[in-house]
């Protein structure tokens, strides 16, 4: 803690030891009760049970969690001068233009040559992971973060100016808003049809929203409902959100643009 006196150091260490042992003891003595898991494991919705819990049983949590990401992108943008009531502090900090250099770590050609194919492969893998989220391991978050990781890899090895894979800030924002709105509106669709928000709609006027092959069926249940669409919405949102955050953290140009007026 730096500046505390030695008495305080002793007091704080003592209380930390107490608290730490309490945490340790509680975690050590966990005895898992099956409880509601009995239902989750015995009901078949889609082959990937984790996705079933995420988007069917507890879809509203996932919605909230999407909003945390959106919120964090907004606030991180705000830290860098977007939509502030008063930009005096940032203007004073970033007064001299000389510091406006985008990050280029000066990697060797080997990395630059290898990064692009790798990030393309990663992006394709991410798309596969998103689209197959309901039948294979994976889903919207995993695929979205894979794509974002590919993008980050490309930016880090080339620097944001010269990067061949370059999403504009506006494009990412649009993508993110689109993803989140899709999620919300799919939830409203469930409400319009059944009265329950985020209801997993099995059919819309007799049509299956996402026709699936027979081979993934169990007990004749073919219906995955709207889960693949929710997966895509979340995937778009996560990839856009994480990429935006990286762009914000890596580039000072955005700050200069924000505090210009």
């Amino acid at each position: 803690m730096g500046v505390l006196s030695s008495n305080r150091e002793i007091a704080v260490s003592l209380s930390f030891i107490l608290f730490g042992s309490v945490i340790f003891y509680s975690i050590y003595s966990i005895d898992v009760v099956e409880g509601i898991n009995a239902l989750y494991t015995s009901t078949y919705i889609i082959p990937n049970y984790v996705t079933a819990v995420l988007f069917d049983w507890r879809g509203f949590d996932t919605l909230g969690e999407c909003f945390i990401l959106i919120n964090s992108v907004l606030v991180a943008g705000m830290v860098f001068g977007k939509g502030l009531f008063n930009r005096g502090f940032l203007k004073e900090l970033y007064r001299d233009k000389k510091t406006c250099e985008d990050m280029d770590l000066g990697f060797t050609p080997i990395i630059k040559v290898l990064a692009i194919p790798m990030s393309i492969v990663l992006m394709l893998l991410g798309i596969v992971v998103i689209l197959g989220g309901h039948i294979t391991p994976g889903g919207g978050f995993q695929g979205g973060s894979l794509i974002a990781a590919a993008y980050v890899l490309a930016i880090i090895s080339f620097g944001i100016r010269k990067c061949p894979i370059n999403f504009s800030h506006k494009f990412l924002e649009t993508l993110e808003s689109f993803g989140a709105l899709t999620f919300l509106i799919l939830g409203l669709l469930g409400m319009a049809i059944s009265g329950y928000y985020l209801f997993n709609v099995g059919e819309i006027y007799g049509m299956n929203p996402f026709p699936s092959p027979l081979s993934i069926a169990q007990n004749g249940s073919l219906n995955v409902g709207i889960i693949p669409y929710l997966n895509m919405a979340v995937g778009l949102k996560v990839l856009a959100g994480l990429s935006t955050i990286t762009t914000l953290l890596i580039s000072e140009r955005i700050i200069f643009k924000n505090i210009k007026d």
Partner: peptide, 29 residues
Amino acid sequence: AYPLPQALVLTNIVIGASMLAIMLALSVV
């Protein structure tokens, strides 16, 4: 394996990442 805790973890990872992002942005400033 129980799927519920895994789903909760997926949710929490994103929450952690978003908190981290804001704190890092503030540290930069």
